[in-house]
């Protein structure tokens, strides 16, 4: 791996962690558990476009593990892992299909992140009744996904990465 790429990758990962921390300091503004802006996804979507699918997975993986070790608990790690895996698979898949903008990719990532959390909650809380939150989480994932995707798309255009 070229050192330049490694450096950008490390920057993305640390940015994702800082954004995660920042978001954890924002008090929850709605009563539905699991609703998040997904600021860290800015760094992941940027890595997906600027570097590639595996690199984005590395950024997301480092973020999930390190954030859980620094600020989280065992349970929050499981929720964020389930969300991150589904979200990444969906985003990389949609980008590979092609023809969609970064906004769509980020929206799909946001919605799938929430879906992953619902599935993990189903497992951990032992009740399928939790799907009650699905419409709220699809809506919030879509709206915040638009904002995150627009920002990430802008960054991909503006940040020069060619050598």
């Amino acid at each position: 791996m070229k050192s330049r790429k490694l450096t950008v990758l490390a920057l993305c990962a640390s940015l994702a962690m800082v954004l995660s921390y920042l978001e954890s300091q924002i008090p929850s503004f709605v009563a539905i558990p699991g609703i998040k802006i997904g600021l860290a996804n800015i760094a992941v979507v940027f890595a997906l476009y600027a570097l590639g699918g595996w690199e984005a997975a590395a950024v997301s993986g480092v973020r999930v593990v390190v954030t859980a070790m620094l600020f989280g608990s065992g349970a929050s790690f499981l929720y964020s892992l389930a969300g991150a895996c589904l979200s990444l698979a969906g985003m990389a898949g949609l980008k590979r299909i092609g023809g969609f903008s970064a906004v769509s990719v980020s929206v799909v990532g946001g919605v799938l992140h929430n879906l992953g959390q619902i599935l993990m909650a189903w497992l951990l809380l032992g009740t399928g009744a939790i799907v009650y939150y699905l419409p709220y989480l699809i809506l919030s994932g879509t709206l915040f996904g638009i904002a995150v995707g627009a920002l990430a798309g802008y960054l991909v255009k503006r940040v020069p990465l060619s050598e």
Binding site: G99, F100, S101, V103, S104, T142, I146
Partner: peptide
């Protein structure tokens, strides 16, 4: 593009 609008509109309709 158009397919972006379809995808996002579809998700909003679904919710």
């Amino acid at each position: 593009r158009r397919r972006d609008l379809f995808l996002i509109g579809g998700l909003l309709l679904l919710s």
